[in-house]
Design a protein around this nucleic acid. Structure first.
Lengths: 343, 343
DNA sequence: ACCTTAATTTTACGCGCGTCAATAATTTTG
DNA sequence: CAAAATTATTGACGCGCGTAAAATTAAGGT
């Protein structure tokens, strides 16, 4: 039970019997004052309700203790999960996470960055939109503010890129699919918003050729981030037209696969391995909903826990050292096969 | 192309030939200065790169132009969608939305509110966790900061509650289900985190009785916000034990239904209307993924566009009038039936 | 042109805190 | 126990902008 509200540090100095500059030191770094005074301060803090005014504090610092987190599309549960992992990691390090979503819009992305710039964050974690991002403006921002890119790369932007090894993960699932049935065709958007899709395209092609198979692509038309809808609509179209060259479809990501599975169900096609099945469908990412599709989706899990913690680690080391990276770091984490029922 | 960076309003006053107080007025409300001077300012703004320092601005205002948005669980695509709708509405009104997720944790919820309090927001839109929320502390917050609750109510907290009319929407789908087949049993969590679940429980009971049927409840054990997992696990258990008293299951929300559908698929049960089907499953909310389940989920759509815009509208009217509501407003929006394949 | 009204400029203070220099108090060391 | 080293206090200034009062200027109407 707090006795009374204290409005300024001056007042708090009066009631606590500690001088204001010492209090200021304490709030900036509790370890910088003698332990006996720290205890006195904390005892007073316990009795009185006082918190330094953020605006006054930050006005007199060139760097705040905010870390911006910008994701391309928060309505995608994958990024929601990543954000959920990132936030507590920030908080533990004593920083305030500020989460912004670009909602699939490059202009919004730049607006988010400008909005962050105004806040003078200590650092930023940015998962860019990708292909449609305004690359030059993103690079400009990264020059001014320490930034770590994750999930999706923009060449030359930021101090580091932490992501998935699409080459390895796609090879992994292609090999699995070839080993257990017909070689897969690759279901992808013809104009994907995200460059990971391009890497996966190339990785599929390389993996198929290495195994002596002919790569076959299933191009889904559509723009934007409504992947399930695109997967469903284009999946329906392909199933209608009997365009499928094989009974095995590897989707560029799980959200497309969710749409394809819905289409297959609609068409009465039994999906899965084994005899009674007409189709195998696999995805990529291990999306939170992948285990609740029908059938449960076989996919490659991105190591997003590692990606999250490494991204935070990188930005913190830049912040704490106070020096930007001279050479840009790129760190890719390997995916792991998640065998379920769909392939 | 901006000529040079201006650091302070003083400097900008010098280069633009406008006095600093006038500039201050302009930045607070561009409409408050004469149009001729507005044009001069905007011309200068076009040539020089200057933005007022947020921290200095907010220090000297008792109220900032921030609106806090607190949701219980951002990894739930429903809330992600709501947030996505809310953000542009805030921005259009000239406010900066600050999105925080409680991640299903009551302590985090209070922390979010405290964090917002420190920011002195003009107002807050709060979708509380519900049953497990620390009600007293939420009420305390709402006393200090204009707050509109949405989605889930906490009695006596905030200036208004904007939500769904569970009574109406549940009756709607119960009547539909009874009209088209066997009366439904109600699949729900025995200890739901959200009081909407309790309202839906009561609404189901009332609707069934009104139609002359016996309400039957299917209680799913489990804690937390992993509804799909609970629906799947408990659905499996019930299907294993052949506990189902009818062939029709109405789930308390779509996320549970997604789990139940996955369980039914796993068990080889054909879900849907009509002859070949062994089970009908319906949900509530019209979750973003409801149209990609197998089969597509019949459900009741919450009017979340209306809920979003009305919530913003309420908080803006409180902010702009500067007076808190004397009587607490409660506004419930009706749901609409979304007939798909599952029931 | 003159008056009224509205808008702008000048001047000046204050917000709450960071931070510095000089001084005083406390702790540590020899 | 005195000297040295560390930590706290006192006093003061500045950050960038809001804002008030008084003086000045510009716009609108007859």
């Amino acid at each position: 039970m707090k006795l009374e509200k204290i409005r300024t540090m001056e007042e708090f100095a009066a009631v606590s019997g500690i001088s204001r500059p010492t209090l200021s030191k304490y709030f900036n770094d509790p370890g910088s004052v003698r332990s006996s005074t720290r205890e006195r301060i904390e005892a007073a803090l316990d009795r009185y309700d006082y918190r330094p005014n953020i605006y006054a504090v930050n006005q007199n610092r060139q760097m705040t203790r905010n870390i911006g987190i910008v994701v391309p599309y928060l309505a995608d549960p994958f990024f929601a999960e990543v954000a959920r992992n990132l936030e507590p990691l920030c908080a533990e390090a004593g920083f305030r996470p500020i989460l912004l979503s670009s909602h699939g819009d490059p202009a919004q992305e730049i607006e988010n960055l400008e909005s962050l710039r105004a806040i003078k964050p200590a650092g930023v974690l940015l998962a860019p939109l990708g292909r449609r991002s305004h690359h030059e403006e993103v690079r400009d921002f990264c020059r001014d503010v320490p930034t770590v890119l994750f999930d999706c790369d923009i060449p030359g932007a930021g101090d580091a890129f932490i992501g998935s090894d699409n080459e390895q993960s796609i090879r992994l699932i292609v090999e699995y699919l070839c080993r257990t049935g017909e070689p897969p065709a690759f279901f992808e958007m013809t104009t994907p918003p995200n460059p990971n899709a391009n890497k996966r395209h190339a990785a599929y092609e390389a993996a198929m050729l290495a195994l002596g198979h002919t790569p076959r692509f299933l191009g889904a038309e559509g723009e934007g981030w409504s992947f399930e809808e695109i997967g469903y609509r284009e999946g329906m179209r392909m199933l209608d037209g009997r365009e499928l060259p094989t009974d095995t479809v590897l989707c560029s990501n799980d959200r497309l696969a969710i749409g394809v599975l819905a289409a297959a169900y609609e068409k009465g096609l039994r999906v899965g391995l084994g005899h009674g099945s007409a189709l195998r469908v696999a995805g990529h990412d291990d999306h939170p909903y992948a285990r609740y599709t029908c059938p449960q989706l076989t996919t490659v899990a991105q190591d997003y826990k590692e990606i999250s913690s490494r991204s935070i680690g990188e930005i913190l080391s830049i912040i704490e050292s106070g020096i930007r990276r001279k050479t840009r770091l790129t760190k890719l984490y390997e995916g792991t096969l998640v065998m379920r029922r769909s392939a």
